[in-house]
């Protein structure tokens, strides 16, 4: 009986929501005054930030403070998981794969690293960036652990090291931001604080954006690797 009540309640709320959104989504023509800011970004973004990739320009320059917040959210999630999911022991993986898997994984790892750092360093030029690159770094750890197994004795130490790397990434992000204050402007200022924006389209351009990307990549990569380690469990 309780289930029926719950179902009815959900249906009523869902239909209310549906009708509201149905009304909203009818006139999908955007009026010009509602796209004012995105027009501005498209028109002046490259000139003001030096980044060709406008998504990165917004993420790491116009709204870099939000990105710092998002990176903090990941940091908290990592802290929370390593706080709550501490295990006394990790079972050693004894699954045996065929040699093809071992060889293939060993072969692919360097390429994955190249991809990850490409994504990070070219974040302001092509799709990618710190978050994406960091995730690719984390996948290399995941692949290695899945194929070659987890040995507990070395585990705690490497986790500690990794969480230090993560802290360093986060601290680096803030210090780059503080550089803006030191140079007489505001927190996370880029072009305004006199950082050289360079020629848009070159690898060394866009001021602090590539540096922020690098720190975010380090942070996200080690953070996600820690999360995987803490949660992995083998039956």
């Amino acid at each position: 009986m309780r289930r029926i009540y719950i179902l009815a309640l959900i249906l009523i709320l869902a239909s209310l929501l549906f009708f509201t959104f149905y009304d909203l989504l009818h006139p999908t023509e955007f009026e010009t005054d509602k796209t004012q800011i995105s027009d501005y970004y498209i028109e002046h973004g490259v000139k003001e930030t030096g980044a060709i990739n406008l998504v990165t320009a917004i993420l790491f320059d116009y709204r870099a403070f939000d990105t710092l917040g998002e990176a903090t959210v990941i940091f908290i999630a990592v802290s929370a998981i390593s706080l709550l999911a501490t295990k006394e022991r990790v079972l050693v993986s004894n699954t045996n794969f065929s040699p093809i898997v071992y060889q293939g994984i060993s072969f692919i790892i360097p390429f994955l690293y190249i991809l990850a750092f490409y994504l990070i360093f070219y974040g302001h030029l092509s799709p990618g960036g710190g978050f994406t690159g960091g995730v690719v770094i984390a996948t290399t750890f995941v692949l290695l652990k899945m194929t070659f197994g987890i040995r507990y004795s070395r585990e705690e130490k490497s986790l500690q090291r990794r969480s230090l790397i993560e802290s360093c990434g986060a601290i680096g992000f803030i210090i780059v931001g503080i550089l803006g204050i030191v140079r007489g402007d505001s927190f996370l200022a880029n072009g305004q604080a006199g950082f050289d924006l360079g020629v848009a389209g070159q690898l060394l351009s866009a001021g602090i954006i590539p540096i922020l990307n690098l720190f975010t990549g380090i942070k996200v990569g080690s953070g996600l690797a820690i999360i995987f380690h803490r949660l992995v469990r083998e039956e």
Binding site: R63, F65, D66, G69, A77, S79
Partner: peptide, 28 residues
Amino acid sequence: LFNLYVFFEIVSISSYALAAINKDKESF
């Protein structure tokens, strides 16, 4: 408004973790 949401998430997620810091069944 969005920055507010980001900080709201920071507060929420850290309080979930702090709520469970005693690591017993009830707090989980």
